[in-house]
């Protein structure tokens, strides 16, 4: 387990990255040093009591000194976060949670909507660590990105730049394949030798639930990053419980990444 750090760290940039999407880069070498993809930070959007609680954000990118988060404006906390300026300091608590444990010959990333946030950090990690050679014939890294419509498709170019095979789908057909991302996955699995594949996913609960069905049907492993309302972030308050076959577990501590077959949907 990596050591958890709390401190005020400098915002390097905070820029719009799509219709309601923003990217914030924070300079926090000690946090980054202890961090791995799939883990998250708990940020205080502003100093003050409204909104009261911190907000969890997964690592979107991990560099040597900085980490980046990708966030969508969904409420008061994230709206205030967009107002934070370069050079200001922000209260960071992290790294938190377990992170992805990468294994398997072929890797399939399934990113629904904002689910690209942690999966891009994972893709970068996989590509940059020599354990995976993207273009080798033996091991492959597939990235499936899905959203409701075109302007909610995020990071497509970033994933392509990494040299991964990217498959885009939208529910309304405004970009890529028309339909659900889980249908894209099923059609991918029917065209490749999937036996040694592992799925890593992040996205809406319904998507993750369907992935657990698909992974059972094809007998492959699937890991997903889960979400729940969260207070402490460190396993103390038991607020972010998810029911697994082992009983309730804490998304902030035992998760956020779970083997999807263990979740009681």
């Amino acid at each position: 387990m990596s050591k958890i750090i709390q401190g005020k760290f400098k915002i390097v940039s905070n820029k719009k990255a799509g219709c309601d999407y923003y990217k914030m880069t924070i300079s926090a070498r000690e946090v980054v040093k202890a961090a791995s993809p799939g883990q998250f930070v708990h940020l205080r959007c502003i100093e003050g009591n409204q909104p009261l609680l911190r907000r969890p954000f997964s690592f979107h990118r991990l560099n040597s000194d900085n980490f980046e988060i990708l966030y969508e404006v969904v409420g008061q906390g994230t709206r205030l976060l967009t107002k934070r300026k370069k050079g200001e300091k922000i209260d960071v608590l992290g790294p938190l949670g377990n992170g992805f444990d990468v294994k398997g010959a072929n890797i399939i990333l399934v990113a629904g909507g904002m689910g690209v946030a942690p999966l891009f950090a994972l893709a970068e990690h996989i590509v940059h660590s020599s354990q995976f050679i993207v273009h080798s014939k033996k091991k492959k890294l597939y990235v499936l990105i899905g959203a409701r419509k075109k302007n909610h498709i995020l990071c497509e170019r970033d994933f392509r730049r990494l040299g991964t095979e990217v498959l885009v789908s939208t529910e309304d057909g405004s970009k890529g394949r028309r339909g659900l991302i889980t249908d894209s996955l099923k059609s991918l699995l029917s065209t490749i030798d999937y036996r040694l594949s592992t799925i890593y996913a992040c996205g809406p609960k319904e998507m993750l639930k369907e992935l657990s069905n698909i992974s059972a049907r094809f007998n492959i492993s699937a890991y997903g990053s889960l979400e729940e309302n969260m207070a402490c972030g460190v396993g103390a308050c038991l607020g972010c419980a998810v029911e697994t076959k082992r009983g309730y577990e804490r998304i902030c501590k035992e998760g956020p990444v779970f083997n999807l077959k263990d979740i009681k949907w």
Binding site: Q50, L52, L53, M230, A231, G239, A241, Y248
Partner: peptide, 23 residues
Amino acid sequence: RKGNPPPRIAETYLGMINAIGLE
């Protein structure tokens, strides 16, 4: 004690509501 099913917490104005259920 197993505790209550999720969601167990909700943020409210200047506060939060919890129903952990003594897990």
